[in-house]
Amino acid sequence: MTDFDFKDRYSRQIRFRHIGEAGQARISQARVAVVGLGALGTASAAQLARAGVGYLRLIDRDVVEPSNLQRQLLYTEEDARNATPKAIAARNALAAANSGITVEAVVDDLDASNAEHLLADVDVVIDGSDNFEVRYLVNEVAVKHNIPWAYAGAVEAHGTSAFLRPGRTPCLVCLLGHGARVGHDTCDTVGVISPIVQWMASYQVAEVLKYLSGREDALSNAILQADVWHTDVRLIRMGGPKPDCSCCGRREFASLGAGRRALSVTFCGRQTIQVRPQEDVALSLPALAERLRPLGTVRANEALLQFETEGVALTVFSNGRALVHGTDDPARARSLYAQYIGM
């Protein structure tokens, strides 16, 4: 427990008239899960921890790498040198920043087998993930258990964020359908700069603080899209859920059902794992080759693409199937797929 006086510690937030003492008391009782602790997740988690959210569950499958340090503000060079699991490094940093709250670290891959266990007992879920497989899963748990969640994503200098409340706003499936999810830009292929991530994280957290402090009337109910390089901001009003939505209308939970996951893995001999989308997709190999060429060696023909960079080798087929060479860890294989192919 902390030796600081509660009212003094949170005085600037309590003095903010839209939160006040009552709002702060509610924030201190709240439980929030953060899925993914990259740049978005660490930025959001840091703000929530300092704001005094009583309980944070930090979920991430990866370890800290040197390329994270440019924008993932909770990590140190020592974390990268030691390859500390992100959830642990983030928990340690946040525990040092606020000992008056509880921070739990979960070093695991969020999937259909554990998603409800890890997310159903919190008040809000923050999306800090880097892929849509996880986001569709979070969306299903959110709808099934009536938990609001904050979507955010950023690449290059642009990003998008929305706070989605089951029954009140559209859900992710209302907005995007089940759409194609494989083969798009990722932070690893097109890069990302810190300011856009911090902005999207701040928008997420602002909406979450309104909700947690009991000020739902102040929620924007809008999707924010911004580009910090071209200095463009758009706000799109969301309206209500789609009545015939397969997820929040008919309550069909495709990702959760029968342990189904968007990316299945199988072992193919030593140090090679096959990763494939649940359904075949039409992946443009020339477009993928163009994205990956600056990052390593690319060889491509009509049927397949081979990509090699430091410590990573991928063979990708046009139906979305990929062979990940150089690892025996399914979580790492899925991570590399999300990083370089995008999903």
Binding site: G153, V155, H184, V197
Partner: peptide, 10 residues
């Protein structure tokens, strides 16, 4: 028309 792209990176 407003066209919003849901981006993947995090």
């Amino acid at each position: 028309i407003e066209m919003v792209r849901f981006v993947g990176g995090g």
